[in-house]
Design a protein around this nucleic acid. Structure first.
Lengths: 244, 244
DNA sequence: GATCGTTTCAAACAAGCGTTTGAATATTTG
DNA sequence: CAAATATTCAAACGCTTGTTTGAAACGATC
């Protein structure tokens, strides 16, 4: 068995077991048994279990974020200088992710579920390298959203981005978590429909009227402030108008 | 030390450690050390570690869902037969949760973060009793939403409910997961502002125009079907009108 | 104040964990 | 083909895990 072969078998087995048992329950003995390789192979090829976890994420995340940025590039080139529509930006970021989740050959929904759940995990170790791996792509998308929504406070955009990540995470978790809401009357096998459903929801959330924030929550975001009494309604109006 | 005292100290210590280390990293030795009790006390008072985990959730979840249902009762009494506004339903379900997350004395944000992350965890054991603990409350809220949005397909409502749970989960995770989006330019300490932000987002998502589903995704949901060509736009319009 | 059931405690248990070792194979290189 | 390097393998390492044990300390009841 060639080196590349062993590495791949370990990565695939580890990913699959992480998805349906978690990092800690998936022992190296289980992983290597499923991969059909020797127990010591993990430490030989990856150095440690933590390094293996890291690599499981790296190989998929680099591909995912490459695709996202490629799509964003394409859209921005097409737009020839004009700011993108928010729906286009969401499509590039979340659409690509859902496409990956639907693609069995590229890790399938398993990896995306694993990813969504790892965001909120307490381990400093995993959050650290997720942040690193995401930094570049997220930065580009943040800028695109700022440009597309100049009237919306940047902090508000960041929060809504965060909320959208949560909605996507649960969307991809699918039936697993969904059976809390309803076991039977929901069909989570149709990924095309899921994409449309999630996209409508996300756009609705992103374009929602701005919240009535208590005065204390006002924060300098770099742009000129607006008279307080008018601010919310004005902003809400402008958001509703310029989107789609 | 009385029995009640030991039980409480263990529950509090376990909850705190589960929040910032996860179930598996929080060993019984760490938990009992933090609680200042003997290692064997956990198995004496709870029977096993799994039973302790279960009880950590039960005591807070029963309180949380009681509050939710109490609020829903109050609103329905006030409405005297008329269906509630979706915003009221969301306020009862998510508002109460965020209030609990802000209340340091009742477990604080820690427990809610733990709860949100446990939804998507792979362990059959945790998802099982979460579903049981939630079944009653979620059932009532589902019915309320069906009544409030008679024009929206029930399956769509269930999905959006699911998406909203994800957004709330990430909202409560707060800075922990948020630093993936942005470390500094966001203030997650103001829970009042967070409530307003999340509520706007959720309502926007819930009232979003219905998605254009591929024909195959059509599913019998018990209500009379509408002519396909008109369905989406019609429903979207009616949703936008009747909400707030 | 002795007796009884309850609760604490230190110690040990078997099992599983990630990792290391050194010899035995493959595979590549000269 | 031979030497050198890369990879596999079975076995063991030290450590941590959840759980059990039986004696000690406690608190209520008669």
């Amino acid at each position: 068995m060639s080196e590349a072969d062993t590495r791949l078998r370990i990565l695939d087995a580890a990913e699959a077991l992480f998805v349906d048992s978690g990092f800690e329950s998936a022992s190296l003995r289980l992983i290597t048994a499923k991969a059909g390789v020797n127990l010591a192979a993990v430490n030989y090829h990856f150095g440690s279990k933590d390094a293996l976890i890291h690599e499981v994420f790296r190989r998929r995340l680099s591909w995912l974020n490459d695709q996202r940025l490629r799509e964003l590039d394409r859209l921005e080139t097409e737009a020839t200088g004009k700011p993108l529509k928010p729906s286009q930006i969401l499509q590039a970021f979340f659409g690509v992710a859902l496409k990956m989740a639907a693609d069995q050959d590229n890790g399938g929904s398993g990896f995306m579920r694993l990813l969504g759940r790892t965001y909120t995990q307490p381990s400093e170790f995993t959050r650290r390298f997720l942040a690193e791996e995401y930094a570049a792509a997220v930065g580009r998308f943040k800028e695109a959203l700022f440009l597309a929504l100049p009237e919306v406070p940047r902090e508000e955009i960041l929060w809504r981005f965060h909320f959208m990540l949560g909605a996507m995470s649960y969307a991809i978790s699918g039936a697993d978590a969904l059976n809390i809401v309803d076991k039977d009357s929901v069909d989570d096998s149709n990924t095309e429909a899921l994409y449309e459903r999630l996209m409508s929801f996300l756009l609705g959330g992103l374009r929602a009227p701005l919240p009535n924030l208590p005065a204390q929550a006002e924060k300098v975001t770099g742009r000129k402030s607006v008279r307080k009494t008018d601010r919310n309604n004005l902003a809400a109006e402008s958001v509703a108008v310029q989107l789609t």
